[in-house]
């Protein structure tokens, strides 16, 4: 613990190493802050296809720069956010989206989390109810004896009576 704190302190105190990551360059920024904000928001949802799990907003690859400029071009041309996304998907395929669309082949992806939650919840509810009922049955008045048991009891009692 103390060592970690010390390490953290060292990290905080010193200047630290980083690979070259540039992302948005000064010359790309749009003049209108509202449009620039939209461009940034869209950039975060789009994948830099030659990178490793980076959005074009984070990446310094040439392709990411091209895509950023393309997004800004479309926004400047008056496209809505959806139109920009559709345009990019039509050009680069669905791989460009960091959040896949809800379609047949992504059904499991989108539905598994709610399925686990509700399925798990339902299963738990049924389980608790069943166990509760079992327990109630177990603690309530003892079950009436079956015919066999009754016969055995009678026999035992009769034997006991014989001995005395």
């Amino acid at each position: 613990m103390r060592r970690l704190l010390a390490a953290l302190l060292i990290v905080c105190a010193t200047v630290v190493a980083a690979p070259l990551a540039h992302a948005v360059q000064p010359d790309e920024v749009m003049a209108d802050p509202a449009k620039e904000a939209r461009a940034r928001e869209l950039s975060r949802e789009l994948r830099c296809m030659v990178c490793q799990n980076q959005s074009i907003d984070d990446s310094d690859a040439t392709l990411a720069k091209d895509l950023r400029l393309l997004v800004r071009e479309r926004i400047a041309a008056g496209d809505s956010n959806k139109q920009v996304i559709d345009y990019l998907v039509s050009r680069y395929g669905e791989f460009v989206l960091l959040k896949p669309r809800f379609e047949l082949h992504t059904l499991l992806l989108w539905l598994l989390p709610p399925f686990v939650l509700f399925g798990g919840g339902l299963g738990l509810w049924l389980h608790i109810r069943r166990r509760g009922r079992d327990a109630a049955r177990a603690t309530d008045a003892p079950k009436p004896l079956s015919a066999d048991e009754q016969a055995r009891l009678d026999r035992l009692l009769a034997e006991g009576a014989d001995r005395t």
């Binding site: 975060r44 994948r47 799990n53 959005s55 960091l98 896949p100 082949h105 989108w110 989390p113």
Partner: peptide, 18 residues
């Protein structure tokens, strides 16, 4: 063979509400 990406926007939308 389909290539899709699942990134931060997906997780923010699904993990966050949980």
């Amino acid at each position: 063979g389909d290539k899709i990406s699942v990134g931060a926007p997906f997780f923010n939308l699904t993990f966050g509400p949980l």
